[in-house]
Each structure stands twice: as structure tokens, then as C-alpha cells.
């Protein structure tokens, strides 16, 4: 990391430097890009492997040394995934759950986070500690009591069970609290003097100022729900309700696993995630820093 930082610092100072330093600046700039590209290659490896595996016959997927470009690409794998299992149904179910849960999570978390970050009230620290503490308990330990609860509410094998379990998370509250807390109090006080209620401040000031944070939570939450396997595994068993991650598992059978089809289906299932990430990217460059508001 140190080298990365020095390199960027160098390249920054180089732009201001005299002509003698110019060549050194170009070199560090080149080095920076080489580093960035090398890192990107390392990050992309699993996807390249997935793409290559998805075009192979199952018997060749784990053959070593790896054949990165399949000699005889099996394009029909991409057709098979839609016909062998009701993949479209699973995509729709995952979409439905992801949209509903993410919306509820961002809405309720940001609401609660505002109170934790900017309002003084009785029991705040204790409550916040309870939120934090809950993150520290592994989910595997309390999935049985949760299941008992859901069965009593007659929600097993219904989407509602997952929505209720995942929409109200401590993680979202904590994440947004940390962002909200760094919004200068002066802005809020000024708004209070202007007669805005706390609700008004939340909607008109906090939310617009926190787009990067809200975008972050949206991405994290959507990725979590989209990729969640254990939740749907325990709660959903009707084919018409299952999600993508359960669908992928249908290619893993008791005595054989069709990795080529799994990888094809996984890649297809990643498309929405990548689209979402790209769509929300622009919010990372649209924060307080660039909108010109200062404390």
C-alpha cells in the first residue's frame, strides 16, 4: 500500500514539478497504471475462470492445467440453464425479494440512523449497543428460534418470511449512522432555526447529502439478498417461490455436479448486480465534497 501511496503522491507532485521531474512523473504514472491493471487482472480472474468453465463440458471444468479458452465452446450451456430448470421464475423471485428487502432496509435503517446520529434521547447508547451486539452473534446460532417463530406465524414457504427476517438489519443502521454523524451539525441547526421539523431535516437535508452512503447501503443490501443462499434454503421449498441461488444448487446433485451449468447460470445472475453497481457508481462522485456545501 505504501508504494501505491508514494506513487500517487509522486505523480501528483510531478504535475506541478519542473521539467526535470517530468520524466519521473511519467514513469510513476505508467507504474500506477501497470499496478492498477495487474490488480484488476487478479480481481477478474474468478470471472474469467467462470466464463471459461461455463463454456466447457462438465468433465473438463477442473482439468489441470487450466485451459482458459475452451477448444470446443459449449454455447448451448447458456440455453440449457433456461430449460433444465425454471430459471426465469427464480430470477423474478430474486428480483422481487431484492427490491422489496433493499427498499425496506434502506428506508428503515436511514430513519433509525438519523435518530442515532443526530438526536439525543433516553436509552440511545444502550439501544445502539444492542444493535451492535446483535451483529456479533453468528446467525447460525439463532436460526432455529427464528424458524420456530416463522412457523408459528405460518410464514414458512412464503416470501414474507425472508422479507421480515432481512429487512431490519443492524448493519444498515450502523453504516448510515457513521455517515450521518459526519454531516456538520451547523447545517442542521441552521435548518432548525429556519423552522424545519426533524422529519423535514431528514428528508430535505440528510437524505440529499448522504447519497454516497445510501448508494453504498443499497448496493450492499441488494448484493446480500441476491446472493443469499441459507435463508431461502431454510424457508422456501416450493419451486414457484425459489430464488436464483437455490436454482444454482439444482445443478449440484447427490452424486454429480454440473459445474459448467452452475458457472453459466452464475454469470447470468451477476448481470443485474453489475448493472446496479455501475448505475450507483455516479453517487460516489456526487457527495458533499463536490456539491460545494461546506461546514
Amino acid at each position: 500500500m505504501d508504494t501505491q501511496l508514494t506513487q500517487t503522491s509522486l505523480s501528483k507532485s510531478a504535475t506541478r514539478a519542473a521539467s526535470s521531474g517530468f520524466r519521473r512523473g511519467t514513469i510513476t504514472k505508467v507504474l500506477t497504471y501497470v499496478l492498477l491493471i495487474a490488480l484488476a487482472a487478479l480481481m477478474l480472474l474468478p470471472f474469467i475462470w467462470m466464463a471459461s468453465a461455463s463454456l466447457k463440458l462438465d468433465k473438463d471444468v477442473f482439468r489441470f492445467p487450466i485451459e482458459w479458452i475452451p477448444q470446443d465452446p459449449q454455447w448451448e450451456n447458456y440455453r440449457t440453464i433456461w430449460t433444465r430448470i425454471p430459471f426465469m421464475t427464480f430470477v423474478m423471485n430474486s428480483l422481487k425479494l431484492t427490491v422489496i428487502i433493499t427498499f425496506l432496509q434502506v428506508a428503515t435503517s436511514s430513519f433509525a440512523a438519523y435518530a442515532f446520529a443526530k438526536l439525543d434521547f433516553r436509552g440511545r447508547d444502550l439501544l445502539f449497543l444492542a444493535y451492535l451486539g446483535s451483529i456479533a452473534i453468528p446467525w447460525q446460532v439463532y436460526m432455529i428460534p427464528q424458524f420456530i417463530l416463522m412457523r408459528e406465524l405460518d410464514l414458512v414457504d412464503k416470501h414474507m418470511s425472508l422479507i421480515l427476517l432481512q429487512a431490519f438489519t443492524a448493519f444498515g443502521v450502523f453504516l448510515l449512522r457513521q455517515f450521518f454523524i459526519s454531516v456538520p451539525n451547523e447545517i442542521l441547526d441552521a435548518a432548525r432555526i429556519d423552522g424545519l421539523s426533524e422529519y423535514g431535516i431528514y428528508f430535505r437535508i440528510m437524505l440529499p447529502l448522504s447519497k454516497p452512503a445510501l448508494a453504498t447501503l443499497t448496493i450492499f443490501s441488494a448484493v446480500f439478498v441476491w446472493n443469499d443462499f441459507m435463508g431461502p434454503l431454510i424457508y422456501l421449498h416450493s419451486e414457484s417461490l425459489k430464488t436464483i441461488q437455490l436454482g444454482l444448487r439444482m445443478f449440484i446433485q447427490q452424486y454429480s455436479t454440473d459445474y459448467a451449468l452452475i458457472m453459466a447460470a452464475s454469470l447470468v445472475s451477476l448481470v443485474p448486480v453489475v448493472v446496479l453497481f455501475l448505475a450507483f457508481q455516479r453517487f460516489f462522485v456526487e457527495g458533499i465534497g463536490t456539491t460545494g456545501i461546506k461546514g
Binding site: L233, R249, I252, Q253
Partner: peptide, 16 residues
Amino acid sequence: ISSAEYQDVMNIRLSG
């Protein structure tokens, strides 16, 4: 129930 996790899920469900 998916086969690899079958017994674990059955255990959770039966306990529930």
C-alpha cells in the same frame, strides 16, 4: 431441499 444441505435443513426444520 438441495441435496448437499439436505440433512442440515431437515434438522433445523424438525427442531422447529
